[in-house]
Design a protein around this nucleic acid. Structure first.
Lengths: 238, 238
DNA sequence: CGCAGGTTTGACTTCACTCAATCGGCGTGG
DNA sequence: CCACGCCGATTGAGTGAAGTCAAACCTGCG
């Protein structure tokens, strides 16, 4: 689960074995620590019975092409959704922080795999339960559409970022988004430089250099590698 | 509608005036040629009353931030959805070809503007009619989810392309997708090199060079600038 | 203390961008 | 019919932003 051969692609363990053998993880349906049932609040006024479980760093919640049988909500920690090219190049679709719902699909299968960035508690609800609730109650259906809507909006913003922004604009946009989301100038980065790079379509070195440069120009403070104080990024974010 | 000042950004007319004054186009609700009512088939078994209209090249169907009151289907021609950065950099989200549905939003407003690439006939259906139909008939609701699902899948594929593929992989993927969609090795490109570039996150020169190189290596034929015969692109598409 | 992981920094390379000239097809008007 | 101009596409030369490879640097931990 941790050792792996010297692979061309830089960061992260299990880039390859995941792609071929991830289903082993789920073979007992939900292998990791599964605690008792409870009500899970997927959105405002959208509470459904479900379970919670704990994922250790880099552990998978679900894999690409797997049946999308559950909907997830982050309780603590952070989750990333990833997609791989056959040669190991990786794209991180999004990061999900406490309160965020992920794994909500339109189709029958997941199009990304989802892994814990750090130790993470997630709540899960059976998709069938969600769908039944949505059919019963139009307000719930609307809630789900709102969730999907925000997700899609993020995705489209990100497409513009990947297609047309340069390195410092990408990093600035990303940090700014985290800062807004946290309602704070001080942000704690749960993810590595490599995760950021794979999200922003850059290399980890470029991310690091860009952040150092931002610190030098006092656009941010960087008390340590995983903590950022945002000062003046609006102008850089394009 | 065609003359415009010398602008930093290369291609296409009305890059700037669109962003500020597009609503003028729609001020009479639906200004362009609007022909009589008819049944519009949005999906298999999803026919609703609507209208058809004709858009001339570069004419807008709707603008970013506009109310999403209609759902559209391409009857002939081609449509692109675009998003602009304040300095004019442009990202084309997707191209829609005959049979494709676009403008279907989760939220109340459009997040992209949509413009005709060439002269284009589109059918439009009131969104409220679509929503009412979906509430009446779960099969229709499922149809809509399927449409949304495919759209999202495309978007996610495209994110991987923009984040992690190089120029020739991008162009190859794009041409291959068009070829599959047309069920033909011979494809007719309705869009300019610049449109392709703004979709693929490249410059028009790089797109042109890449296609020339593919022709030289016999991966494609290029009988003329707007026609491509696909021979051997799978290996290049990554 | 020493190792392992992630991070930073440096030197060098390269892929794609920029700027600019040329080409080619098409429509218009002499 | 041909010449001209226009617009998009192509090609070339040179540059630069980000990538690659590699070394050094932290920081936490056994």
């Amino acid at each position: 689960m941790s050792a792996h051969p010297g692979l061309a692609y830089p960061c992260l363990d299990t880039p390859r074995e995941r792609a071929v053998g991830y289903d082993a993880v789920m073979e007992t349906e939900l292998a990791p620590a599964r605690t008792g049932g409870r009500l899970v609040e997927l959105g405002p006024g959208l509470a459904l019975p479900g379970f919670t479980l704990t994922l250790s760093p880099n552990e998978e919640a679900f894999g690409e092409e797997e049946e999308a049988d559950f909907v997830y909500k982050v309780l603590s920690g952070a989750v990333r959704t990833t997609r791989l090219l056959s040669d190991g190049r990786r794209q991180i679709g999004a990061f999900y922080l406490p309160g965020d719902v992920f794994g909500l699909e339109f189709g029958p299968v997941h199009r990304f795999s989802a892994e814990a960035v750090t130790q993470t508690d997630v709540a899960i609800v059976r998709r069938s339960a969600v769908e039944r609730a949505a059919e019963r109650d139009p307000a719930i259906a609307r809630q789900l559409w709102t969730l999907a809507s925000h997700e899609l909006a993020d995705l489209q913003d990100h497409m513009l970022l990947l297609g047309r922004k340069n390195a410092s604009e990408r990093v600035a946009s990303f940090l700014l988004k985290l800062s807004r989301r946290a309602h704070s100038r001080v942000i704690e980065l749960p993810m590595s430089r490599c995760d950021m790079a794979d999200h922003l379509g850059l290399t980890l070195e470029t991310v690091s250099r860009t952040m150092s440069q931002m610190a030098r120009s006092h656009a941010i403070d960087l008390p340590n590698a995983r903590r950022v104080v945002v000062h003046d990024l609006e102008a850089l974010a394009a």
